[in-house]
């Protein structure tokens, strides 16, 4: 039988050589045995890990970088509170005119172009707010001030968020 090829010798060492005849030849042929020995030495060296190992501080450094930022968490909560306040104020400012429904409808009528002559009867028919008005009494609030305050708060939050982004910190950064 012909001597084994290199690929067969390597497969034998990988325990993947299945050909019975080749395995028998290898066991009895001194030439193939010797060639196998040279591969065996190389294979044994390949099973040794590279001499380099990472710094012992690797784990600490990674854990430090992925640690949730408590400041970021407070910041996130603050942002959520501000957004909540903003939404509440927005909703209130949107609904306040309805609390003074008569005045509101009057003012709407005034800003319409006279040529269109819109019919507000349907709106008045479905407007349940006058009854709400009677429930709320003479509630009168300077909501313009509220809108301005909400605007200032949201602007401050937005600016802070942008500054945070510019510094490489985001609320979602863990």
């Amino acid at each position: 039988m012909k001597h084994l090829q290199d690929q067969d010798l390597q497969l034998y060492l990988d325990q993947q050589l299945r050909d019975r005849e080749k395995i028998d030849h290898l066991r009895h042929c001194p030439l193939c045995q010797e060639r196998l020995d040279t591969y065996e030495i190389v294979f044994s060296g390949l099973r040794q890990a590279p001499q380099w190992t990472p710094s012992p501080q690797l784990q600490d450094k990674v854990m430090q970088k992925i640690k949730p930022d408590p400041a970021g968490s407070v910041y996130q909560q603050l942002l959520q509170v501000l957004a909540g306040i903003g939404m509440f104020i927005g909703a209130l400012s949107f609904s306040l005119p309805y609390l003074h429904a008569d005045n509101y409808l009057e003012s709407i009528k005034k800003i319409q172009a006279p040529s269109l002559k819109p019919d507000f009867s349907l709106l008045e028919k479905f407007n349940f707010l006058p009854s709400l008005k009677s429930m709320t009494g003479d509630f009168n609030f300077n909501y313009s001030l509220l809108i301005i305050a909400a605007g200032v708060l949201l602007l401050a939050a937005l600016m802070d968020h942008l500054i945070g982004l510019a510094r490489g910190r985001t609320a979602s950064q863990r």
Binding site: D6, Q7, E34
Partner: peptide, 21 residues
């Protein structure tokens, strides 16, 4: 080439093993 080594047959087994030994 994969066959070059075995075909040339110049590899003579040594009683002392391979130089790597």
């Amino acid at each position: 080439d994969d066959d070059a080594e075995t075909q040339s047959m110049e590899w003579i087994p040594s009683a002392e093993g391979t130089p790597l030994d």
